[in-house]
Computed example of a mutant assay.
Amino acid sequence: MKAMAKHILVKTEEEAAGLRQRLDKGEAFDVLAKKFSTCPSGKRGGDLGEVRPGQLVRVIDQVIFKKPVGVIHGPVKSKFGYHLVKVYYRD
């Protein structure tokens, strides 16, 4: 199984919740990722590329491989901070 996902990683739940509201109002995921994400993937608009189960931290892995595709999930807490995750496809 593999999937393609993007994410935004920030330090606080409040920051993630604020970005979630902006995304829900229609702001572009990749633009907000480039501006706010602390993950190196932010430079690529949050693009994690094609991933397989077990490649990412467990909590993010579960979102990518078990939650609905095409919607934004989060804030999701990991040891790195708070994530907003969007899964584009999974097969």
Rank of each mutant, 00 (worst) to 15 (best):
L19C: 04
V57W: 05
K79Y: 02
V57K: 15
V69D: 05
Q62Y: 10
K34G: 15
Y82M: 13
L56R: 10
K6D: 13
P40Y: 06
R58F: 04
R22T: 13
G45T: 12
D30V: 04
F65I: 11
K25N: 12
Q62A: 11
D91S: 08
R90I: 07
A33C: 02
I60P: 01
S41V: 11
A17Y: 04
S78D: 12
A17M: 05
Q55D: 15
G49D: 09
D30L: 03
G81Y: 07
V10M: 00
L23T: 11
I60E: 10
Q62K: 15
R58A: 12
Q21L: 00
F65P: 07
Y89L: 03
F65L: 05
G45P: 08
R58K: 15
L23P: 04
L9F: 06
K43Q: 14
P68G: 13
V76G: 01
G26F: 02
P75L: 03
A3P: 09
H7Q: 14
A5D: 06
K67L: 07
P40E: 10
Y88P: 03
L56N: 15
Y82I: 07
S78A: 14
L9W: 08
G42A: 11
A16Y: 07
M4N: 15
G70W: 04
G54K: 13
K86R: 12
V10F: 02
P40H: 13
V87R: 07
V87I: 10
Q55N: 15
D30C: 09
D24W: 01
T12F: 01
P53K: 15
V85K: 01
D24K: 10
E50V: 15
D30A: 14
F80H: 10
S78H: 11
K6M: 05
V31A: 14
I8L: 07
A17L: 03
V71D: 04
Q21K: 13
V59F: 01
R90L: 06
G45F: 11
M4I: 12
H83Y: 12
K77P: 09
P53W: 04
F65K: 13
C39A: 14
G26R: 13
A33E: 05
K79W: 07
K86F: 00
A28R: 09
I60Q: 04
S41W: 05
P68Q: 12
I8Y: 06
P75S: 08
Y82F: 11
K35G: 06
K43C: 08
Q21F: 00
V87P: 02
K34C: 05
K11G: 06
Q21N: 10
E50F: 00
P75D: 10
E13Q: 12
D24I: 00
A17H: 07
G54L: 09
V10L: 00
V63W: 01
V59K: 15
V51C: 09
G81Q: 13
G70S: 11
P40R: 11
R22P: 05
S37M: 00
I8E: 06
Y88A: 02
F80D: 09
V71Y: 05
I72F: 00
P75F: 03
A28F: 00
R44L: 14
V76C: 02
K77I: 02
E13K: 14
S37A: 04
V76T: 10
H7M: 12
R90M: 08
R44I: 03
A16P: 05
L19R: 04
A5T: 11
A28W: 01
V10P: 03
F65H: 13
G46D: 09
M4P: 01
E27R: 14
V85R: 02
E50Y: 00
I64A: 04
